[in-house]
Design a binder for these strands. Sequence first.
RNA 1: GCUCUGGUGGUGGAAUGGUAGACACGCAGGACUUAAAAUCCUGUGGACCUUAAAGUCCGUGCGGGUUCGAGUCCCGCCCGGAGUACCA
Length: 1053
Amino acid sequence: MRPQTTLIASQHQTKPVNKISMDYNFSDIEQKWKSHWQQTQLYKVHNDTSKPKYYILDMFPYPSGEGLHVGHPLGYIATDIFARYKRLNGFNVLHPMGFDSFGLPAENYAIQTGQHPAITITKSSEVYRQQLNNIGLSFDWSREVSTSDPKYYRWTQWIVLQFFDSWYNATTDKAEPISTLIAHFEQYGSHQLNAICTEHEPFNANDWCNFTETQQQALLINYRLFYPGEGEVWYCEALGCVLANDEVKDGVSERGGHPVERRKLPQWFLRMAAYAQRLLDDLNDLDWSESMKDFQRNWIGKSEGALVHFPIQNHHEPLSVFTTRPDTIFGVTFMVVAPEHDLVAQITTEEQKSEIDTYIKYVKSRSERDRISEVKTVTGAFTGAYAINPFTNLPIPIYISEYVLAGYGTGAIMAVPSSDDRDFRFAKHFDIPIVYVIADTENLDNPTEKKRGTTINSGFLNGLDTDAAISQAVAEIEKRNLGKGKINYRMRDSNFSRQRYWGEPIPILHKYRDQTLPLFAVPENELPVTLPDVTSYVPRADGQSPLANVEEWLKTPNGWRETDTLPGAAGSSWYFLRYMDPHNEQAFCSPEAIQYWENVDFYAGGSEHAGGHLLYSRVWHKFLYDRGLVTTKEPFKKLFNQGMIQGRSNFVYRAQAPFYEEYFNDFLQKNFAKYQPVYVNKGVDFCLELCDLDIEVASSNSDRKLSNLQNTYEQSDRRILVVFIEQLIEWINTPEKLVAFVQNAIDSQNKFIFADNLPAMRSLFISQSKLSAFSERASTTLHVNVNLVQNDVLNIDGFRAWREEYKDAAFWLDDNSTYRCGWAIEKMSKSKHNVVNPDEIIAKYGCDCFRMFEMFLGPLEVSKPWNTDNIEGTSRFLRKFWRLFNIDESTPKLSTDQPSAAELKVLHRTIKAVVEDVERYSLNTCVSHFMKCVNDLTDLKCQNQHILTQLTILMAPFAPYITEELWHLLGNEGSVHTAKYPVLDEAHLVESVVSYPVQIGGKVRATIELPANCSQDEARTAALSNPRVLQYTEGKEPKKFVFVPNRIINIVV
RNA sequence: GCUCUGGUGGUGGAAUGGUAGACACGCAGGACUUAAAAUCCUGUGGACCUUAAAGUCCGUGCGGGUUCGAGUCCCGCCCGGAGUACCA
């Protein structure tokens, strides 16, 4: 389909119309410049260190098979505008794009279809690239990276091996090569070492030297930053594989609805927790939104407290807990251990065993989120074992409950029902005693409402306030050797392996098959370890990845390959560095490139990445910093979170059986009230009390009903009219025909009346504005393709053509003969038929219009619905802008005179507003400023070359094509995108007179004009003598006189 | 559950604590046209009041508070959206 505007334009060109300006023909213009820019490589970025750098980046997209919808480009257009703006202001701007191409969707598609994910992903990347190019984005595609490309993932694997080869030295507070750790072990054993590691038995230098290789390696993995261990994952017996959280819905697998359970399997981990404190500290210097920083702070979840060991009766090992409130230790009346805690099996008594087992089974089916968010019902089980409160020496029962997570703290808590809400509910439920340890909580219905105060019933802590009691308690705990003060982080080491095919193979070799230790890194010169082809992408029933089936790949001269792959986060945690030097085969990025580009200045993406990608990337960057591979501590200086674009769905309403009776009832009341129609619905639907006619509304295919009626009425003194639904539908928009039909029946003498020549049965759709008169049962609501709707008015022909079943659809229309649809704001999705494809919009309105409209929708950071209707305004604006140039036969007829003061004022007011708003990322208001400017210049009949040239450059970042075309029509060389950005001259904005609103008691009662540099006294005299003001002050002295220069006057009487 | 975020006309939205509704859409009326498209003009938060000009009151989810002045700041609610560690 050719765009409408083009048709009109070509008509004008073929007609010999005299002196009509050339119309704005976006499709020719955009085609022309798109290929021209490609040929001249306008957007190619060089590592040109003579210019200041600016690195602007969009979050890595995953190329989904469905292509882009209008929500995706929002951020890309915004960053493109900033990139172009920065370029015009003299920066060397890096603005690259690539694809995060490993991941589950392609893999699941491969499982279903057998197609290699590399093929699907290449196809969808190609679609993405084309669509992005359609939007006029100034990416340097020569720098494109793709995580599933072996040339790229070679370096992902390389960095992972650096993690493997590192440990965290808590003294120097950074990651160091594992060789320095081994040197330490050889000299001191594990003594005098301050490292972040998994706890293990201490050993000395002599021990170390006598350990076997496997023993040494087992110790080292307690320190490595990338290490093997055991982790809980979702496992589905029926599907025979590990599932992602996303693939588990309501406790069953999303595919097939099979039961799932948490299962411990060998996994690889990234020792993220080592970086917790630095991740927290360095947030302060970042230009991120406070909410995003808050999110990460909460995620890291630092808490200060104490580690306390409670002895267990009849058991050698103590129960260790972490608590933030050691001051309440006298109030501990029970302990709760995570159901999966190792101790549970050891301490559970014979009598309690079956209860505990049943409970553990229940918990295995629960997600972590379910476990912590469930507060209404308390669940748990008693182990039968008792711990001893070391301060009161009283035995306290040990329970297990799902609200305690194995992965947090020590996986066990000391429960203080008088100060913790969940403990309180638990104690109530299991009838456990409550000891009050804070003054004035004894008489509260819920003592946990008061969490701080004077300590009571607590021996040596009595009388202390909470803070003093905490430090006193910690001191005493340490003195009695019961534990120690400790800082705990909620953030834990990240599970960094997947038992799946479509990811980077973990470049590790095992000496023996199916035995983790000993293990070795794949030598650097053998990277990348590429993915072998497999016959099936389905994970193995034993939970291993499909790679474990590829015998010839598994076995190498030096050992057996690791079969786990890396998660998506691996490739996306460092990609922004690769863009700096994307083709380097000697290093992941050259030191020179890193020296110049440093890190990302402006990073745009959705806030949903806060806990994942943004945290992983920070850890990787900090690690690379520690190892001297990058020069900055943080990867992303400024973070901008754009909102989502929601879909705006449209609905049509299909009539259901009850509709016809309801409709006819209403019809009778309106048109035949004089016969007193009554809805009887007994045998027949209606009877007209003041005449001898009954009426039945029926479908023509209910033959038996008809013959029954006929029989009944042959013996009756009343007559019957059968109104067929088909007839009702046929006459729905011409009720006068139905009136005539019914009137005829009333007037006739026939016993049994029905229409014979019936139209075919069609489905009926009711316009939204008619709907309110009917019950909910009268219609069903159906999503309709939004592309068939404009301003909520349905394109009826389009609708009929949309689906076979709607071919003959009938419509009950509004009085103005339109069908009005209902609407709702929902997520944009295929099933809701509210997906709008940018390509279609661009074909109809042009890329420039699409870009400006996306920006015009609303503030970038806010979620908002897409509504194509409003695009007309933006389209009109661009045509009006074009007309300003007075183009006759492809030459603008403009004046080269000195612009007028009024014109200059409009221009500079716009420059000021646009620059201010671009700098604060408010792009929707920029579009408004351009509209206002074009409106004002049109009103001024401005045809000044200087003004319009400046405006063209100003608008170039927003509308790159039309401005480029006009730039050349104006006779300029080069590209508008390499021009010099307009500079604000305040001199043009100086006003001699300011108009002040005068408020009296906070309400505006008058407006007065005052000289620009007016003093408070002058303003006071002028305001108080104003007749309007006098009406309110009645000449009295005001209580207060507020004068805000250039703003407002407020008088208090 | 927890954390974050938002709530302003019929619609999208604008507004450093300073005239709420800029800029658009839609709608209504008008001009131009054989007609349509395109374009242009006028009106458009609600309720009063007036022949008119003008004016009055109410209005930014709800209830309080701070201030000469609150959409904006503070406290307490209500409703929607997002994230919640293996979707990316």
